[in-house]
Amino acid sequence: MEYTVETKTYSGVPVNYGEAIRYAGAKAADENLYALIKSCIEECDKENAVNYAVCFAVLPVKVDGDAADFSAFTFKSKNLAYVLRGAKSALIFACTVGMGIDRLIKKYSELNPARALVFQALGAERVETFTDFFIKDYEKTFGIETSPRFSAGYGDLSLNAQKDIFNLLKPEKRLGLTLNDSLLMSPSKSVTAIAGINGLCQNDKSSCKDCTKKDCGYRR
């Protein structure tokens, strides 16, 4: 089976303040919180703390019942199979915004937890926004449409799937993105995911409604 893993870097991904505020656990921002977020963004810029990089591969996929067969590996997951239905191939990728934001989170978790919380939220917003940005760019470049992205640990897809995704993409070498013994990624502000290409599942960007975790604090 032949496949290529490509690596790409991006810059200038615009900040989505609303999402940053949501990840910080607030429903709305007063002037004070808004100023705090702004100053955190400034510190990120000054420290060059955010570096957008992605590596990705396109693999053929056969969906059969609950199984998605990528020939390099097969994932058993009803939810993933649903998302990939009708797709003949899938985009598998790992996105990261790098180590810098982890350093800032660590720095401020000792010095100023409010700031640490905002960096945490901003990091989550950065990597999510970047991931969407990358997918859009990919869709545009190749004139395709993708399904909603689906990550290991979503629904019934075991977090163990991370191991196969890492074996395929080797993001350790390409992005400095590693997997620890508890299957967490470092740098922490990273996303790996699978998206079906030209399948039946439309990406309507409101993926919360399909999620089985109904008690999630971030549910829209």
Partner: peptide, 9 residues
């Protein structure tokens, strides 16, 4: 909200 709680703290 949480950020304000922390800023107060």
């Amino acid at each position: 909200y949480l950020p304000q709680l922390l800023m107060s703290a």
